[in-house]
Amino acid sequence: MMADTPSSTTPKGTTRDRTAPKGPGWRFNWVGRIGLVIILFWGLVALVGPAFAPYPPGEIVDWDYFGPVTGKFWMGTDYLGRDILSRILMGARYTVGIALAGVTLACSLGVILGMMAAVAGGWFDMILSRLLDAFNGIPSLLFGLVVVAAVGSSIPVLVLTLAAIYMPGSYRFARALAVNVNTMDFVTVARARGESTPYLILREILPNILGPVLADLGLRFVFIVLVLSGLSFLGLGVQPPNADWGALVRENIEGLSLGAPAVIFPSIAIASLTISVNMFIDNLPSKIRDRSE
């Protein structure tokens, strides 16, 4: 009985530390923290930003176009003389909102199906995996193009399309994780106890794949922002007079050679959001991050 104490490679202090990354007490280094702050900032802007817009985003407020940064127009004006700051604040709602809705839909569906396939196995798993793999064989931007060409662009169409593009990847990721957890003895024990499949999925498997799944959700969010911006840049995303950040860049691309702030600030907005999400995820504690790329 005497040696039955925690083994000495992991002195008492470390066993405590190892379990520290749980709940809100996660540790990040400063790069991860900066990322988190920027993400939260844009989230907040998307929620309440438009209320603080100095001008109505669709209104022409300046006689000049591609106006410079002034005290009146903090980020200059666009090709029609609309206030860029107001349009970026409004654009945040489109970019962040559509991407978030898309990624949530894609990941929840993907993760649920992935876990079901891992637990059920057999035909269900094989048919679903084959089908979604085949779907993965379509390049994402291309799929977006085709769908938008077919049904026209609207926000629900964009959300559903983006979700459809990224659902198979999420499924594959979650399934791979769940298959690993599913072979663990604690799942076998629960199964031998006679537990139902929903219990196995929700109580035994989900808590053990949640960390990597959330990290994966972050990465997919970045991809969705990029594809959405790309679609908008091609004129197939959010339709005028509304504009997400990608559409703002497209509208004002003529101002590029003039170095107009109207094209620079929306670009910075996109880049700051996507880079900060990547920074945040890259600096998550490795236990949560360990994802198969």
Binding site: V222, L226, S229, G230, F233, G246, V249, I253, L256, S257, G259, V263, S267, I270, A271, T274, I275, V277, N278, M279, D282
Partner: peptide
């Protein structure tokens, strides 16, 4: 690499135009 994969393709292109052409 993380900077490049984080920004949309059109931005890389725009940047290239800005630097090399403009």
């Amino acid at each position: 690499t993380i900077s490049v994969i984080s920004v949309p393709e059109f931005m890389v292109a725009t940047l290239a135009v800005l630097i090399f052409a403009v």
